[in-house]
Design a binder for these strands. Structure first.
Lengths: 197, 197
DNA sequence: TAGAAAAGTGCAACGACTCTACTTAGTGAC
DNA sequence: GTCACTAAGTAGAGTCGTTGCACTTTTCTA
């Protein structure tokens, strides 16, 4: 999975990072996020606290270790879509193809629970996505040949990036994603009233 | 504006809170958010640091002092809309009537600049709104007689609450709000290409 | 193999925030 | 009035995240 890095130095660096991330996740799942200090993690990984911050930007980042290059994939989905496909369809397809599988790995339940039960982690997770608003909207605007901060592109990007948050916790995530894209495609309409019981 | 509180105790309490908020805002505008410590604020307001935290939940909350009962207004706009008016129209009208005026008071420019130039404040401001997602979507769902966590209601609530963030910094906020409601009403469509220059 | 570069260490420090025990002051009943 | 109750405020110590600094160790490179 992880490619054997070129130099020994890089390998050791990656190993250290991994040791920290592993120790952190284990302790978080065991005791809860707020009950684990950076010192605990550093001790468990047998490094100094300064080293922890050399590898991770902050305590929250220790939890979301593997979430990288999602941004690049997102942009690529827009830029390299099959000719003739609309941007909205390209985004829908990318979301359906990519995002649900993320939660399909082991420990997913515990992990999701950890995030959802820790306010600061929920907040961080939400911001992770919306942080890409600018680059996604720029890509969309580029494809359409309009200005980079075109409001309608920014709004679309933002709304699409809210989807993971909105679809989280739904029994049928696929249907949820479809429903939200339905709003973005055709506009919002009042949901049909369920039969009174 | 502020009603004369019942008891002397309550009046003094409110005065202390106000003194802290005033001192904080003045110092923030003067030096910048990160260059002012809680101790500075406490000293300026002539209280102890512990007192600051008795009145405000954290440093960011010192900046957004007056943002209360916005939630209540929002819910009311949905619940008490004129009969025959759609929920989307009610929300649009409420947003247009209420939100732009907020930035029309003195110091608005400096204040906006303070928030926009301080990442942690930007983040806090964004979360302030989306925090109301649950209550707004519950109100919408109630009006429609569907389940409280109906996905389409949650999504609409969330998207509407993103509007202040999206419209911030636009030259014509009114037009921006209208454009975004257009997306929510009729669906997203590629913006028209501006004439090549 | 010397010496640059990078990873890691230990420690001190700062600021946000909390806790505890204490003082002060307004409140309401007698 | 005064007495007991309660809430506001204080001082100070302590925790924790985070940063900076001077230093050692390891790895890369010429």
């Amino acid at each position: 999975m992880t490619m054997p890095s070129a130099s020994r130095r890089d390998r050791k660096k990656a190993a250290t990072r991994q040791a920290i991330a592993d120790a952190a996740l284990e302790l978080f799942l065991e005791r809860g996020y707020d009950q684990v200090s950076i010192r605990d993690i550093a001790d468990a990984a047998d490094v100094s606290t300064a080293t922890v911050f050399k590898h991770f930007s902050g305590k929250e980042a220790l939890v979301f270790d593997q979430d990288e290059d999602r941004e690049a994939q997102l942009i690529a989905a827009v830029r390299e879509r099959p000719s003739g496909q609309s941007i909205l369809d390209a985004l829908r397809q990318h979301v359906l193809d990519t995002w649900p599988s993320i939660e399909a790995h082991p420990q997913a339940a515990e992990f999701t629970n950890l995030v959802n039960s820790t306010p600061v982690l929920r907040a961080y997770a939400e911001r992770m996505w919306t942080r890409y608003t600018d680059s996604l909207s720029a890509a969309i605007a580029d494809e359409l040949g309009v200005d980079h901060d075109d409001l309608s592109c920014v709004a679309l990007a933002r709304f699409v990036l809210e989807i993971p948050v909105l679809a989280r916790g739904r029994q049928d995530r696929r249907a949820a994603v479809d429903a939200i894209f339905g709003i973005l495609t055709h506009g919002w309409e009042p949901p049909s009233r369920p039969p009174a019981q």
